[in-house]
């Protein structure tokens, strides 16, 4: 626990404990822990002297923040316009079916998270998804299952 808060303190120091730096601090915390645990947010609230509800206001407004744990493996399906006209909705359905979770959810064993993103800049591969670091261009259910099975 102490180790965790020490890491948070380091992040806060890197940005200076001004309220203006709050979003940048939260982004770094999100990156470090893959979500924003309550005890950490309370710590940030004390250190920056910002009410906790102010912090929750931010974390619910910006899409990147997660108030629930994310899975060890992330599956991101692109819902950008270019992918949409090439069948992104169906790719999302397929992925959702294989993983057994809806977009925005994390599987019970915290293995997978499924999220949507907008334009990965890889429109040539559309509809496209990223499984951890691997880009999959219009994968079938079989392809997705194979990728999921290969995850630890």
């Amino acid at each position: 626990m102490l180790g965790k808060l020490a890491a948070v303190d380091k992040i806060i120091e890197a940005h200076g404990s001004e309220r203006e730096g709050l979003i940048q601090i939260l982004l770094d915390i999100q990156r470090e822990f893959r979500w924003l645990p309550k005890d950490i947010l309370e710590h940030v609230s004390k250190r920056l002297d910002v009410p906790i509800n102010y912090i929750y206001n931010l974390t619910t407004f910006y899409a990147h923040f997660s108030l629930v744990p994310k899975g060890r493996h992330s599956m991101h399906v692109c819902m950008g316009t270019a992918c949409h006209v090439r069948g992104a909705e169906r790719l999302l359905e397929r992925t959702s079916k294989v993983l057994g979770i809806k977009p925005g959810q994390t599987s019970r064993d915290e293995k997978f998270s499924l999220d949507t993103v907008n334009c990965l800049g890889a429109c040539a591969l559309g509809p496209v998804m990223i499984a951890d670091d691997e880009y999959l261009s219009n994968p079938t259910m079989e392809d997705i299952r194979r990728k999921a099975d290969s995850c630890e």
Binding site: M79, T81, A82, H84, N118, C119, G121, C123
Partner: peptide
């Protein structure tokens, strides 16, 4: 770059 089908600013 909020337009969900664009990446020129990124480029």
């Amino acid at each position: 770059e909020g337009d969900p089908g664009a990446y020129m600013d990124r480029g």
